[in-house]
Amino acid sequence: MPGEDWHYFPPAQPAGREQMQVTRADGYDFARLDWQVCEACRTGFVIAVRVTDEYQGRGYAGRMLRYALRGREGYAWTTTVQKPMGRVFFQRMSRSTGVQFGDGRKPFLCPHMRTAHGLPGAAQPLPADD
């Protein structure tokens, strides 16, 4: 949408945390996805998805998650325990992407993901249609 910016924060180290943020032109951060991926073990972990109330239902969470999944076909994905709205979101995403996100009870972190720490690296702006 016009007046919004998409930012990708790559991992600062292999298997480290990544982040996607969507902000308004005034800098207000209204959508965010945090995740980790280990390319060696072909695993992914969705840490958190957040879209503020006024922006929910507009497809931001799905677009961010599809970005994280891109090029990672066949990876095993898990996520954290979800509230009812989160469970519905991940069920819908599973149907639309074919990716299962685990049972939502016990996230799987491979040894590489467990040893990676810290925040993601510096932001990289993305075109609005990514």
Score class of each variant (00 low, 15 high):
Gly57Ser: 12
Tyr75Pro: 02
Val81Pro: 10
Met113Ala: 01
Ala48Cys: 14
Asp26Asn: 15
Met1Pro: 04
Glu54Phe: 14
Phe101His: 07
Cys110Lys: 04
Ala31Asp: 00
Asp29His: 05
Gly86Tyr: 07
Arg95Asp: 05
Gln124Leu: 15
Ala25Val: 07
Phe101Lys: 09
Ala15Tyr: 02
Met1Ile: 06
Met113Asn: 03
Asp130Leu: 01
Arg105Pro: 08
Glu54Ser: 14
Pro127Glu: 01
Phe9Pro: 04
Pro125Ser: 01
Ala48Leu: 15
His112Val: 03
Trp6Thr: 06
Gly62His: 03
Arg87Cys: 04
Arg92Met: 05
Asp5His: 12
Thr23Ser: 03
Tyr67Glu: 02
Asp5Thr: 01
Thr23Trp: 09
Pro11Ser: 13
Pro14Trp: 09
Asp129His: 01
Arg72Pro: 00
Gln19Cys: 13
Leu109Lys: 15
Leu33Gly: 07
Val37Gln: 05
Pro107Asp: 12
Asp29Glu: 07
Tyr60Gln: 07
Ala31Gln: 00
Pro11Gln: 10
Phe89Thr: 00
Arg17Ile: 03
Tyr28Asp: 00
Glu73Leu: 11
Cys38Phe: 04
Tyr67Leu: 03
Arg50Cys: 07
Phe101Arg: 10
Arg92Trp: 06
Pro14His: 08
Ala25Leu: 09
Lys106Thr: 12
Gln124Lys: 15
Phe90Tyr: 03
Glu73Arg: 12
Gly3Tyr: 11
Arg42Val: 06
Met20Val: 08
Tyr75Phe: 12
Ala128Tyr: 01
Val46Phe: 04
Lys83Tyr: 02
Lys106Gln: 10
Gln19Asp: 08
Glu18Met: 13
Pro14Val: 11
Met20Asn: 06
Gln13Ser: 15
Thr80Ile: 11
Pro2Trp: 08
Thr23Met: 06
Arg17Met: 11
Cys110Leu: 03
Gly74Pro: 05
Val22Gln: 03
Arg17Cys: 09
Pro127Val: 07
Pro111Lys: 08
Pro107Cys: 12
Trp6Cys: 02
Met64Arg: 05
Trp35Phe: 00
Arg87Ala: 06
Met93Asn: 02
Gly59His: 02
Leu126Lys: 04
Leu65Met: 01
Ala122Asn: 05
